[in-house]
Nucleic acid binder design. Sequence first.
DNA 1: CACTTTCAGTTTAATACTAAACTGATAAAA
DNA 2: TTTTATCAGTTTAGTATTAAACTGAAAGTG
Lengths: 145, 145
Amino acid sequence: MYAEESFKKKRERMLSILAWFRLSRFYNQSIRKSNQHLKLWNITVAQFDVLAQVGSTERLSQQELADKLLVTKGNMTQLLGKLEQLGWIQREREWKTKYITLTDEGRALLDEILPVQEQFQADQFGKLTMEEKKQLLNLLKKIQS
Amino acid sequence: MYAEESFKKKRERMLSILAWFRLSRFYNQSIRKSNQHLKLWNITVAQFDVLAQVGSTERLSQQELADKLLVTKGNMTQLLGKLEQLGWIQREREWKTKYITLTDEGRALLDEILPVQEQFQADQFGKLTMEEKKQLLNLLKKIQS
DNA sequence: CACTTTCAGTTTAATACTAAACTGATAAAA
DNA sequence: TTTTATCAGTTTAGTATTAAACTGAAAGTG
């Protein structure tokens, strides 16, 4: 009885490790490929993610932006510094808070890259059927629930 | 007809983007949590991954190690430099190649951390049933096939 | 044997990212 | 009003990571 359960647990652990390995492999390759094709526009994935987030929402503070993108505010400070320097975003201070908006150049760049990047994402999961994509999404949701 | 297909494609794209967002969120949180509990042993995830890989295989070269862990050889050089300096691994040169093995301290440390880390991985996927874990693994395999 | 190619590992410059300490302004409390 | 808390954003030190150039040894070729 005990031996039975121990064996089952071992199998479960093994499955988890395999799943983790697959997942992180996929993630890392994806980031790498993404950075490669984004080189065309001299922008990185991290920078693009900020642009996309800023471009799709009304007035976000730096902290809110960090929360949405799941990074620290320190990281945000630096990314935004770079993006500001490149002329793609601007910061407007209001009391303690700085609100971020796209400049015209930032908006133009985003409009140009967004469809390409969306297609890239779609291609990444291209081997899955619609049904399987839904399945995957649900499993990922459940993990984090 | 065309409108129909276009709509379907849009839905597929949206699913892909959502899946990607979930996946990267999970990945990043996981790395962060992992680093947090590994602080107890003054080791990082990246360093532990190398130890675990070295400890589970006979004689790997730096390049092979990089391939297994899906990082560049430059990254490997640096990680191994750190691990060597900490006294956990050693490099043995043979012709052009350097082979990596664990030192006794490295082995002891790995033996101590491995079960904890395996349990951590298992817990991460703890909300999934055995069947769902298999499903997830298969979907991830299919994506990359 | 001399010349060239290949290939493991190293170095360098750049970006990304975290944790933790810090700054300075606003808000709350006394 | 003075003091204290809080809280947004910044800074700093450290690790991780890549791409690309470099080094030097080994292998292949003539």
